[in-house]
Simulated assay, not measured.
Amino acid sequence: MRPNALGRAVIGLVATAGIAAGGLAAASPGYAATAPAPQPAVNAQPAARPAAVLATENFGLTSAEAKNVQRFLADYWGYTGAIDGQLGTNSWKAFQRCLAQYWGYTGAIDGDPGPNTIKALQRLLKDSYGYTGAIDGIAGSGTRAAFKRFANA
């Protein structure tokens, strides 16, 4: 006996449901839904300072000397931050632009005064500010003394 239209529809639904159920049961981990990533707990207290704020690095300059450097950077190298005597990320980005233009700095303009920034700074200081040490990327006492002379020029 042949099933009528209603019977064929029921058989089709049962078959579809069985295939779907079997397909889910045999699913490999590649097809399984991933669990949501755990979310950090919300802190009711506001952060003391934004996470993006980086430390300043004055390399021994006083606040007044660092302000002199920031004025130089504002006049010639696109520094638009506060003249606050704190050589932070934006101060160093402007300085890196200067060092890239004239003193062989080839790193990222990222505001991080790391060894490559210091090497370029040492080349500048050796040329005109009495630095006599090695171009080694270490801001030792000779680099710091010459940087003070630069800041006070």
Results as ranks from 00 to 15, higher is better:
N43S: 14
N90D: 14
S128E: 14
D84Q: 04
F95S: 04
P115N: 06
A20I: 13
R144G: 04
A20T: 10
P113C: 12
G30F: 11
Y105R: 04
T89D: 13
L125W: 01
L125G: 02
A32I: 14
W103N: 03
G114R: 05
T56R: 05
Q39A: 15
W103M: 09
N4L: 07
A151I: 04
Y76N: 13
D110I: 10
A37L: 15
A64Y: 03
K148I: 11
Q70G: 04
I138Q: 08
G88I: 01
G81P: 00
G22K: 03
R149A: 03
A66D: 07
T132H: 03
G104Y: 02
A108E: 12
G140Y: 02
G12A: 12
A48E: 10
T34Y: 12
R97F: 08
L6Y: 11
F147W: 12
A52R: 10
L87G: 05
G12Y: 05
P50L: 09
L87K: 01
L13V: 10
A26T: 15
D112M: 14
N152K: 03
Q45R: 11
Q86C: 08
G12P: 02
A82W: 01
A37T: 14
L125P: 04
P40I: 07
P50I: 06
P40R: 10
I118C: 00
F95G: 02
G114L: 09
Q45G: 12
A100M: 11
T117L: 00
G107E: 08
A151N: 07
A74T: 06
P46V: 15
R149Y: 03
W77Y: 13
V69G: 00
A48T: 10
A5E: 14
A145M: 12
R123L: 04
R8N: 15
A48C: 04
Q39W: 13
R71V: 02
N4G: 11
L125D: 00
L6T: 09
A25T: 06
Q101N: 11
I138C: 06
A5W: 09
T62I: 09
D75S: 15
N58C: 05
G142S: 06
G22M: 09
G140V: 06
T34A: 12
A51N: 13
A108M: 10
D136L: 10
N68C: 05
G23Q: 12
L13T: 10
Q86E: 13
A52T: 12
N116W: 11
F150S: 01
P40M: 11
A47H: 13
R149K: 11
A74S: 14
R149L: 05
G7S: 13
Q70R: 00
R144N: 00
I135T: 03
K119L: 06
A100N: 08
